[in-house]
Design a protein around this nucleic acid. Structure first.
Length: 596
RNA sequence: GGUCCUGUAGCUCAACCGGAUAGAGCAACUGCCUUCUAAGCAGUAGGUUUCAGGUUCGAGUCCUGACAGGAUCACCA
């Protein structure tokens, strides 16, 4: 039983004995005491005045007296208005520490028997990844790792959008302007090559529109009738009819893109257990439309189109199948939802998709629940906000995007120059130095994107957004490197902290107790991050932890201490902190160095 | 226009789901490298939590209404 639980149990007994009242455990909560007051945990008595029938002060005092005499951990208390501040026996934190220190799997909760799929990334194969995709990928990867730490079995899935009109646009432009160019001859990554033709398509399309307008067509007509657009539409029809030449080109260009994506994914450090391709799934879901009609969940209009009526749930009527019997987006999403379940029998399914699709997923999930799917209640849209630039929204066709590959390259270069400026690479081999720059550059970028609550939209200023000081990835990485240095020295001078007997410690300094206090929160934060699907909870925690360690580091001399058992204890405390940082950062997808 | 999301220090973000005098980082200013890594530590300054009502012992947090920004509302994906 941990400290909080035993105190809460004590409070429950206090109510029983003092006020003759039964209160259930889940109505009782402890908050950390604010810094300006003495104490560790605070119990607020205001809600219980009806039960105690006396003043806040008297109520708090009576409970405080009871706890002090009957709960070992509580050494004293003070009362400020209705706030009962509990002071703990400092040495209680030694027991907590010993428990944490002996846990070989810190930050890993036991298996919970549930299986969850996290779908993320899900790129279009007509252009390279940009800053927005980085947020998506880092979020998805991190949430998947956090769920693993919470005891789930996790399947990371990537639903690749490899077909459709936008892909055909790149293909048409390539046919016109490509001159048999390949990634090799162009010296471009395959995804960037495809993106180049996507942009060329748009330029040509606009040119043709202008020509049509000057020959007398309205803007709307010009948009619909530009020859190059008609070509793309014709190509899509041919693709759907399995036209050999079109499929060959499609395959060729997609392979280029996949090779490019693979490089980008490798550098980002994300991975997937399962790839789904829309070219395989885009026809799914029509049987579900039939099923929905039979069950009365859907209804048919006169022209044959099929709809779902969600007005009772506060939404609108929504089309699920066109009048001509062809699919819309949501048709295939219904089919894919079933496919995921057939493949893995998942209990939960998380979709990491931007918030511009909030409405779409709201509709999708309501439909699947109406259809009585066993996984219906486990569907969750992890909706995240857009990443804006100071100049406004990114538009890939207008070239105002921050390219993912370029940004990562810049981050690593900045990390390199920064490190060299500080003169911190003595003794590094060139390979080790490269590895460090990669770690720091990517760490800064990932931390920057993950520390913010996912649902909030965020501003990215390329000039000044990413720092290496303060609340940043490198700050936490630096803290880890500092500890690694302590551990090396402990090894050199033969401090046997792994088998030390901590019961010999007779008193704890404030910064030691505070550090253990925050270390003790690690698992709770992992649980919270999992429940909320929010890596930012962990990021914030790790920053606080690193800060607390740095305070301890500055205040407590470790090796100058005379008492051997105190030396061993402080080294052990440092090691536990470094393990916690390393594990926590790994859940954010960030590596930590031993030297920097 | 309907629906949804957001609004906290000059800037970027927190605030443990209703608790005490709203906290960090950046930027500014002041100290600390002859001791384990100064990418650090300690400190100063910075706030009518967009506004107006309401709910109660108590509101940044919940409710109503404004205002501002964003998203969405296609037989598009």
């Amino acid at each position: 039983m941990n400290i909080q639980e035993s105190i809460i149990k004590g409070i429950q007994l206090a109510f029983q004995n003092t006020f003759n009242a039964d209160i259930s455990i889940d109505q009782l909560a402890l908050a950390p005491t604010r810094k300006e007051f003495k104490g560790t945990y605070t119990f607020v008595v205001f809600p219980f005045l009806k039960i105690s029938q006396t003043t806040p002060e008297a109520t708090a005092t009576l409970i405080g007296d009871y706890l002090k005499s009957s709960v070992d951990a509580v050494s004293d208390y003070n009362v400020v208005k209705g706030f009962l501040n509990l002071e703990l026996n400092n040495l209680i934190w030694l027991d907590v520490f010993a428990q944490l220190f002996s846990n070989p799997n810190i930050g890993q909760l036991p298996p919970n028997g549930q299986r969850v799929m996290v779908e993320y990334s899900s790129p279009n194969t007509n252009k390279p990844l940009h800053l927005g995709h980085l947020r998506n990928n880092f979020l998805g990867y991190s949430v998947a790792e956090i769920l693993k730490a919470n005891g789930y079995e996790v399947i990371k899935a990537n639903l690749v959008n490899d077909r459709g009109i936008h892909i055909c646009k790149s293909m048409v432009a390539y046919q016109h302007f490509g001159n048999q160019e390949t990634p090799e001859t162009a010296g471009l990554k395959g995804d960037h090559l495809a993106g180049k033709y996507y942009v060329l398509f748009d330029q040509e399309y606009k040119k043709q529109q202008a020509a049509l307008i000057s020959s007398g067509l309205s803007e709307e007509e010009a948009k619909k009738n530009a020859p190059i657009l008609l070509e793309a539409q014709e190509m899509l029809r041919k693709w759907e009819a399995h036209d050999e030449a079109v499929v060959t080109l499609w395959n060729r260009m997609n392979q280029w893109v996949y090779a490019g994506f693979e490089q980008t994914y490798n550098r980002m450090g994300v991975d997937f257990d399962k790839f789904y391709y829309e070219s395989d799934t885009y026809l799914l879901g029509k049987d579900i439309v039939e099923e929905g009609l039979e069950k009365g969940v859907f209804f048919k209009k006169e022209n044959g189109s099929v709809w779902v009526d969600l007005t009772a749930e506060g939404l609108d009527e929504k089309l699920v199948l066109r009048g001509d019997g062809t699919s819309v987006y949501i048709t295939q999403d219904m089919g894919t939802a079933d496919l995921k379940y057939q493949d893995y029998r998942i209990d939960k399914s998380v979709y990491v998709v931007g918030n511009e699709q909030d409405y779409h997923f709201d509709v999708l999930y309501k439909i699947m629940r109406k259809l009585g799917r066993p996984y219906g209640d486990g569907l969750y849209h992890l909706s995240y906000g857009m990443v804006d630039l100071p100049t406004g929204k990114m538009k890939s066709r207008e070239g105002t995007v921050v390219d993912a590959d370029e940004l990562m390259e810049e981050m690593v270069a900045t990390a390199e120059s920064h490190t060299k400026e500080l003169g911190k690479i003595e003794g590094f081999s060139p390979d080790q130095a490269t590895e460090l720059y990669e770690m720091l550059g990517l760490g800064a970028l990932k931390y920057f994107l993950l520390k913010v609550d996912p649902k909030k939209r965020m501003l990215f200023n390329p000039q000044e957004s990413i720092e290496f000081q303060g609340n940043t990835g490198p700050f936490i990485q630096y803290s880890h490197a500092r500890i690694a240095s302590i551990l090396r020295k402990a090894g050199q001078i033969g401090v046997d902290y792994k088998h030390a007997d901590f019961s010999k410690i007779s008193k704890l300094e404030d910064s030691e107790a505070a550090l253990i206090f925050i270390l003790n929160d690690f698992e709770k934060k992992i649980e919270l991050a999992g429940q909320e699907y929010s890596p930012s909870v962990l990021a914030q925690y790790l920053f606080d932890l690193a800060k607390e360690y740095n305070r301890f580091y500055a205040e407590m001399p470790i090796f100058l201490e005379n008492d051997d058992s105190v030396v061993a204890f402080r080294v052990a405390l440092s090691e536990l902190t470094s393990k916690t940082i390393k594990k926590g950062m790994s859940l954010l997808g960030i590596h930590v160095p031993d030297r920097m």
